[in-house]
Simulated assay, not measured.
Amino acid sequence: MVLDDTALKKFGFIPREPKDAINIDPLQTGGKLTEEARHALLEWGDGYSVCDFCGGVLDLIKKPPIDEFVHGILPEFLNIDAVRITHGARESKFAVMHSIAMEGDYVVMDELAHYSSVVAAQRARLNIKKVPHNGSPEYMTEAELYASAIEEVIKTTGKTPALAMLTYPDGNYGNIADVKRISKICHDYDVPMLLNGAYAVGRMPVDAKKLGADFVAGSGHKSMASSGPIGLLGVSEEYADIVFRKSPTNKNKEIELLGCTARGATIMTMMASFPYVVERVNKWDQEVENARWFAAKMEDMGIIQKGQKPHNHDLMFFEAPVLYEISQKAKKGRYFLYKELKERNIHGIKSGLTKYFKLSTFQVGRENLQYVLDSFQNIIDKYKT
């Protein structure tokens, strides 16, 4: 086969931009690799690297210590009975839905659920019942409305939903719903509860048994300083044999995981970063304090934090009428903010957004956050003079 040389020149090593910017993108702040993970990425990047040590079950590899990590450390970390590594939180959610529910069953989920939760349910051929939030300015998911949603499903179908799911926190406003109350309501109806912790596991303490979660989905590349795609799935003992059932023909392969999931660089970077992840989870109170401090300073400039107050997570949503007003007159229009921030080496607010945007303060630190605040003020002053 002969390929065009011009086309081939587009490939090879491609440097990433921006490389050293202050990053406030909610999708990226929790996924930045540690130095140990960067070394692991080089050491274990070959496609066969971990598979060389596999005797047939990936998560039972003794050396490197994947077995101890998956079956010992992670269940203790989440306080749940069984854990498996997956390709991401969405794969974790699908595995639960596909194994727990039958085609046509209902899953109840919050209105602010990530699109991947909806797609996972659709892929499993399930119906969806949404639990509404309370609207602006809080956009909070009310626990009691889970009972209403479950009752509506019972009234419509004659049976309870197969599953309930809560996004913890939601990916739009960073709200932390009353998961204990929601799980209690679900269990009163004998409905198991899945916690989508893509922005929680690896950032903040998550105790599945204390919260009442039967299942926990986590994201390594969003929140566990891992090279993605990678995630994890925690399952309580009651449902472990269902979710992790094995193939009748390939007896050591778990069906929902298609035998094997994340391997090579992904799992090795997760393990390499894990001591640091545990350390930062133990300092979560400081992250919340930084987020609240940052939000208050933004509001002093007329940029209003929407959602739960006082805020309990690093992910925040802002309404910025002052920036929107500038965008109506600025030469670069609605792209002015992105370009002004880029000139100041700040990355994370999507190009074209001025009136509404979200960001994260996670692991940015007070000094850099102050620089971000000063930059917003300088931009406002620049266009108001």
Rank of each mutant, 00 (worst) to 15 (best):
V107S: 09
D110R: 07
I154F: 08
A101G: 13
H87Q: 10
I85P: 04
P65Q: 09
H98F: 10
P75R: 06
A113K: 01
R90T: 14
V118M: 12
V118Q: 07
K63E: 15
A95L: 12
A101S: 13
F94T: 00
L126G: 09
I128W: 00
S116F: 09
L112P: 05
N127W: 00
R84Y: 06
I85S: 10
H98R: 15
A143S: 13
S136P: 00
L78I: 02
A120K: 02
Y106D: 09
P132M: 08
I150E: 05
M140H: 06
M109T: 12
I150K: 04
A124R: 10
I66Q: 00
A149Q: 08
L166A: 12
L145D: 10
V96Y: 08
A113E: 03
K93Q: 14
D81T: 07
T160P: 01
L78N: 05
I85R: 12
P161D: 09
I154V: 13
E138C: 02
A101D: 03
T156M: 12
V131W: 02
R84F: 02
K159Q: 12
S99R: 14
I61W: 03
A147S: 14
I80G: 01
I66C: 02
E152Q: 15
V108E: 08
T86N: 11
L163I: 11
R90N: 15
L166W: 03
M97A: 15
S116D: 13
Y115T: 11
R123G: 02
L163P: 05
A101E: 05
L74N: 06
Y139I: 00
L145S: 06
L145T: 12
T86G: 09
V131Q: 02
A101Q: 03
D67K: 15
I128E: 00
D67S: 14
K62P: 00
D110F: 09
R125S: 12
L166R: 11
A82Y: 14
N79T: 07
N134R: 13
Y115I: 11
E151H: 05
V131G: 08
A121W: 06
E76I: 01
E138R: 13
K93P: 00
I128Y: 02
N127A: 07
E91W: 10
V153R: 05
G104P: 07
A101L: 11
P75Y: 06
A147P: 01
V119T: 14
D105S: 11
D67Y: 13
S92L: 08
H133R: 04
G55E: 12
F77N: 04
S116M: 12
A82H: 15
A143M: 03
H71I: 04
V108M: 12
M102Q: 13
Y146F: 14
V108L: 10
P65W: 06
Q122A: 03
K63G: 02
